[in-house]
Write a protein that binds this DNA or RNA. Structure first.
Lengths: 231, 231
DNA sequence: GGCATATGAATGAACG
DNA sequence: CGTTCATTCATATGCC
């Protein structure tokens, strides 16, 4: 087997080491090489992963068919284990953390909607989301406030960064994402990945899409812009 | 940026790391050329599947083991798929680290500083610091945010420790880690899945074996093969 | 080769 | 709504 090691430590220093760099747009684009054989192996591995995912989803469906409402426990659910019987709170988590499902729903509403939802709308959303975990209207309200504010901020930063004479192209992903109304990077994450891997199973596609919103927290959503480079 | 190194255990062919083609058995082996962005795309695609697998496994565990009431942070699925077991990452992204000069300047501004710099100020600072290394406005913004927050926390802790009141309620970052022995991010995702989940499906078991047994980690020993790079 | 710590980054909540 | 604070997540690094 072979191991691919990407040493990231001294990124600046290593730029010159690479023999295979090409110039792009007046800047330097760094490229890597791999053989067809290597690429084929990668493809297989991803396919295996996908297959595993599919079967795991199936297992999950079978299990949840029986024990459904036991809880949306994947997200927060801290349920004050530290609360004593006397009502004395020692230390408990306060901050709400959306579950994967909740996030997915929120993102969907956000991208289709324009502006912060009305109070009535917030109630509805909260009601819906409460089926997937503990949540309050305030949480929903704050989420939309933050989501909008940060989306806008990113735009501003991205726009202004175009004016700067940047000496490198490796800006943080925050700047590189310009949220266009037509794209939904977070929610398309999984399904797009599947496209890239050339999946045929449509059922797993939808199911993975269902799960996709939850990975928001791991890989920040911005980076998913422009996924399929060649497709 | 990064340098890709191929471990040479059994791939005698892949010798020219930085060349676009390598010679094999007297012939020419054709290889793909990728940008870092494309590679990161691949990484993400795999990471998506890895995350999905882990979350599905997690869900399965939760559904199976009802006595798992200890709570903890089940929802914070984190699989760190970017880190190989060898400690090398396959991510093109890495967090910004200020250079010595940049730090000096930042500290100076912070000390003389009157609170958080305005956005215009951040632009100026960023521009100045960019002469001493890669940096973005977001980096500067985050730095001041963190600097101020942690400075304040230190003050509070010092103050409370000076008091006869030993109610140390302010050291959240440290305290949190102490009170919650959070599980270490699992690098060997697939292997872990095998241990924790008893699959009835023999097919998936064998596949997990393929991934977890044949490879220590899917990111550890593998060839990167032609994803949609060229498509 | 785990831990421990420092710190960059993400984000829920609050402020004005 | 834009900005800021507080908390937490995630990673880099050093020690043992």
């Amino acid at each position: 087997m072979m191991v691919m090691e990407w040493d990231q430590q001294q990124q600046e220093n290593q730029r010159e080491e690479n023999g295979n760099l090409s110039v792009n747009n007046g800047g330097v684009m760094y490229v890597k090489v791999m053989t067809d054989e290597q690429l084929e192996t990668l493809r297989k591995q991803i396919a295996v992963y996908a297959s595993i995912c599919e079967q795991l989803v199936e297992m999950h469906k079978n299990l949840t068919a029986h024990q459904d409402l036991t809880g949306g426990r994947l997200g927060n659910l801290y349920c004050d284990p530290l609360m004593t019987s006397g009502g004395h709170k020692i230390s408990a988590r306060q901050r709400w953390t959306p579950t994967a499902v909740q996030l997915q729903i929120l993102e969907r509403i956000f991208e289709e909607g324009t502006g912060t939802p009305s109070k009535q709308k917030i109630k509805e959303i909260t009601s819906e989301l409460s089926q997937h975990g503990q949540i309050s209207e305030t949480n929903v309200y704050n989420w939309f406030q933050n989501r909008r504010a940060r989306s806008k901020r990113k735009q501003v930063v991205a726009a202004s960064s175009n004016n700067n004479n940047n000496n490198n192209a490796a800006e943080s992903e925050v700047e590189t994402e310009v949220e266009s109304p037509k794209t939904k990077p977070e929610n398309l994450l999984v399904s797009q990945a599947q496209q890239d891997v050339c999946f045929q199973n449509t059922e797993i596609t939808s199911q993975l899409h269902f799960l996709g919103g939850g990975y928001h927290n791991i890989y920040d959503q911005h980076a998913w812009q422009g996924m399929c480079v060649g497709c």
